[in-house]
Simulated scan of single mutants.
Amino acid sequence: MAFASLKDVYIHQLQDLYSANKQARLTTQKLAAAAKDPELQKALEAGVIGIENGMTALDAMIKGHGESPTAEFCKGMEGIVKEAQAHALDADFTNDEVQDAVIITQYQRMVHYALAGYGCVKTFAKRLGHDEEARALEDCLKETRSGDLTMSELAMGGINKKAA
């Protein structure tokens, strides 16, 4: 794809973020199924809903520009998802709390990637005068930040202590 304008970059990044969310959703579902702590399971299930909300918003934005949401594949999230699979799901654990601590770590890596993506596209939307899209992207950012904070609270609130 040739980028001739910020709008081209914006649409490409929306598509890339849609792909990242699609990959993260499946992995988050797997992490939720593997989590042992009930609060962690609940938080991850809420994370799946948040990711789906983001995908819905991105889908509408991309289609509103006459493009396909599935036109890009996010290689960055592909690597993060592979790491989550290897370290949180396929690794051998003899302690459930240790696995839960690793699940939080891997989920937060996915979340931080999404935060960077949402922040960039929100800035592009504002610059391009797409104020409604910028507000929707800010909502996605807030929901994503909330999930990240919940994971930090779970880790510091007991899961990491039990894992130690």
Rank of each mutant, 00 (worst) to 15 (best):
E133K: 06
G147F: 13
T123G: 12
D37G: 06
Y118W: 05
L26Q: 14
P69E: 11
V102C: 04
K7P: 00
Q99H: 06
D100W: 05
K75L: 09
G117Q: 00
N160G: 02
N95D: 15
E39N: 15
A71F: 00
E133S: 03
I62N: 07
K30H: 07
G76S: 10
D59L: 04
M77T: 02
A34L: 09
D8K: 08
T70N: 10
A24R: 06
A20L: 10
Q29S: 12
H65R: 13
E83Q: 07
L58N: 10
D92A: 14
T94E: 12
Y113D: 03
N21H: 14
D148K: 09
K161F: 04
M61S: 09
C74W: 08
F73T: 15
G79Y: 03
E45C: 06
R135K: 15
L40E: 03
M55D: 05
F73C: 04
K42C: 11
Q108Y: 04
D148S: 14
A35S: 03
L17S: 00
A114P: 01
M55I: 08
T144G: 12
D100L: 04
E97Q: 13
L149E: 15
A86R: 11
G158C: 04
L26R: 14
K161H: 08
G147K: 13
S68R: 14
E132Q: 09
I51K: 09
V111M: 13
G158I: 04
H130E: 12
P38I: 12
P38D: 15
A84S: 11
L26I: 04
K22Y: 08
A125R: 10
A136E: 07
A84E: 07
L149S: 15
I62T: 06
A57E: 14
G119H: 04
V48T: 11
G64A: 00
D90L: 07
L6W: 00
F73Q: 12
D37T: 09
H12L: 05
G117H: 02
T28G: 08
M61Q: 08
L6F: 01
D16M: 01
E83L: 00
A46E: 15
A2I: 14
